[in-house]
Amino acid sequence: MLSRVANSIYWLGRYSERAENYARFIDVNFNLMLDLPQDLKEQWEPLIQATGDYPVFVNKYGLDFDRKNVIYFLAFDEDNPNSVLSSVTNARENARIIRENLSKETWEKLNETYLFVKEGKDKKIWKKEDPRAFFERVKSAILLLYGLADSTVARTEGWYFRQLGQFLERADKTSRMLDVKYHILLPSPQEVGSPLDFLHWMALLKSVTAFNTYRRLYGNIDPSSVVEFLVLNKYFPRSVFYCLKAAEECLFKISGSNGQGFSNSAEKAMGELRSRLEYDDVEDVIKSGLHEYLDDLQFKLNQISNHIDTNFFQIKDNFEHQINYQG
């Protein structure tokens, strides 16, 4: 497969997943806010902190973390390179570059999703009292794309590059979703473990479609169990560990190695991080501090992405400046 094509497929996977997760972010905060006692102010700042878009936001809007501002910024703002609209646009742009590698249906559905999100901007969805139906549709549209791919794409190199992008992005976003809870302030320290605190954890689980599974596996809502579930669980397809394991397998399929040790620097970095999570328990996570642990995780995920880039996408170019950087 052409290096340039592999690069675009990888980013197609990342941007689709990013768009879906940003739709989820907005959803989780909405659910959290609905359960707040009346005298408490809505908190939208934590979302901006958790997604890592804080500097871009403050630069444009100052410290006005108003709900409409934040929803606009995360969903429709083209100055925010990670917003739903930017991500869908980038996914579509990458798809357009490699359209010859996609099925007609895949391209058309992605194109429709793009047109739908753009229309959402024209309709000023962020001004709505309850915009959740819109974000629900964004999620469905992307899940439909995954379904299409699942039943139509041949399991050859391209498939694994897309999956690789998708799982790395999901690992990052699940960790950030969990971080939202860290940034949300409770009215007082006494509220830790209060009904309000539990409501928060439940809303968080629901936003990653994990609530029912969690209930079956763990029963009671308990912060450390939620952390264990979303970071270390071996079977839940949105947990960080599961995503890393799946991404690692993609790397093995791509290089054709047997999964013993590593055959390139991307596999090495991936294997190190995966095995760390494999042998950590939730006490290790809490001990190092949840936020710090997640922060480090995100840093390492970025390094892995850089290794993937060096190993597979860098080409000995005739015209170096034509290569555009994506991030």
Binding site: L2, R4, V5, R99, E100, L102, K104, I315, N318, I323
Partner: peptide, 19 residues
């Protein structure tokens, strides 16, 4: 260009892909 490459099942290349 991409349509024809897709329909024929061949690679779509730009100058940079070739040496």
């Amino acid at each position: 260009h991409s349509y024809l490459a897709q329909q024929m099942g061949v690679e779509l290349v730009i100058g940079m892909d070739l040496m």
